Computed example of a mutant assay.
Amino acid sequence: MSYNDKGHGQPIIFIHGFCESKEMWLAYEDALSPYYRILTPDLPGHGESMWMDEEITLEEVAVILGVWIDELALEKPIVIGHSLGGYVTLALAEIMGDELGGIGLFHSTAFADDQDKINTRNKTLDFVNKHGVEKFVKSFVPPLFQDNPDAELQEKMDYILKLAQKTSFPGLVAFTKAMRDRKDRSNVLSNFKGKKMMIAGQTDTAIKIGDSRQHEKLVDFYFELTGTGHMGMIEREAKCLEVIGKFMDRYVNEKLV
């Protein structure tokens, strides 16, 4: 499994989302590594991580990450996941429990897919099998961002699109199925003993804000980004770094001392 590892001290693991890779966290590595040890893995079949199986479950991904955490001897890591990365984070919390120092959901949810979302996943599978990865991501990535991006955001969107095109075909198919078939982990989120954060986008079309707000009572620190879609870590980078910093200062650092 390919990963970046920068800085020293309290480890924070950032897990990317569907059709993304560790490169999306480069600015976070630069900003946070003077204070923390920042680790950003590529999930199987994404970025530079190899694909080894035809099928995979989120539970199996969590086991892979758990072994990786043990191999690196990371103590009480904070795990923050975007979208699919949030689903993986909750699966990891289910098996590791209080071995994790805290968790964060970034435009993600503890709920399972409803029937409409399941139907969308199945349409994705049909489309990808017929047209391939490149054509799919060209239609998939732009709507994740807010409408009418300025020149700076458009440049970032183009970069994320290029990263998405590197996703392997079997990885894309397998993770679509894994997301479709995942179980509800709201009890995992509720019962997790470490500190918990959620960042949501008010105009997110992938994770509806109404669903996000149902998580507010389940976490210690909940924050909504106004005028922001599904890619808040890109659209509102400075604000997201500020929110993560507040979460670490208010909740995690004090608890871990």
Rank of each mutant, 00 (worst) to 15 (best):
Gly17His: 01
Ser33Asp: 08
Ile80Val: 13
Gly81Ser: 09
Lys76Trp: 05
Ala62Thr: 07
Val67Arg: 15
Met24Trp: 02
Thr57Tyr: 11
Ile56Ala: 04
Gly9Met: 02
Asp30Val: 11
Ala62Gln: 05
Met52Leu: 13
Val63Asp: 10
Tyr36Thr: 03
Met24Phe: 03
Tyr28Asn: 03
Tyr35Asp: 09
Asp53Met: 14
Asp70Met: 06
Leu84Phe: 15
Tyr28Arg: 00
Ala31Thr: 01
Leu43Glu: 11
Ile13Met: 04
Val61Thr: 13
Tyr28Gln: 05
Glu48Ser: 11
Gln10Met: 12
Ile12Tyr: 00
Ser21His: 11
Met52Lys: 14
Gly47Ala: 05
Ile69Trp: 06
Ile38Val: 15
Gly85Thr: 01
Val61Ala: 05
Ser49Asp: 10
Glu55Gly: 07
Phe18Thr: 01
Glu59Thr: 08
Asp42Lys: 08
Met52Arg: 14
Glu29Ser: 03
Glu75Cys: 02
Gly45Leu: 07
Thr40Val: 12
Ala27Gln: 10
Leu58Pro: 06
Leu74Ile: 06
Asp53Ala: 14
Asp30Leu: 12
Ala27Glu: 12
Pro77Lys: 07
Ile56Pro: 00
Ile12Asn: 02
Leu84Glu: 06
Gly45Met: 07
Ser33Met: 08
Ile15Gly: 00
Trp68Val: 08
His8Asn: 12
Leu65Glu: 08
His8Leu: 07
Met50Thr: 15
Val63Gln: 13
His46Glu: 09
Ile15Phe: 01
Pro77Asp: 10
Leu58Ile: 11
Ile64Gly: 03
Ala27Phe: 03
Asp53Ile: 01
Tyr36Arg: 12
His46Trp: 00
Gly17Asn: 00
Ile56Leu: 04
Glu75Met: 05
Thr40Leu: 06
Pro41Asp: 05
Ala27Trp: 02
Gly7Pro: 02
Lys22Glu: 14
Pro11Ala: 10
Met24Ile: 15
Lys6Trp: 01
Asp70Thr: 08
Ile38Pro: 00
Trp51Ser: 09
Pro41Trp: 10
Gly7Asp: 03
Arg37His: 10
Ala27Cys: 02
Gly81Gln: 04
Lys76Val: 05
Glu23Leu: 07
Gly81Thr: 05
Gly9Cys: 02
Leu26Lys: 15
Arg37Lys: 14
Pro44Ile: 00
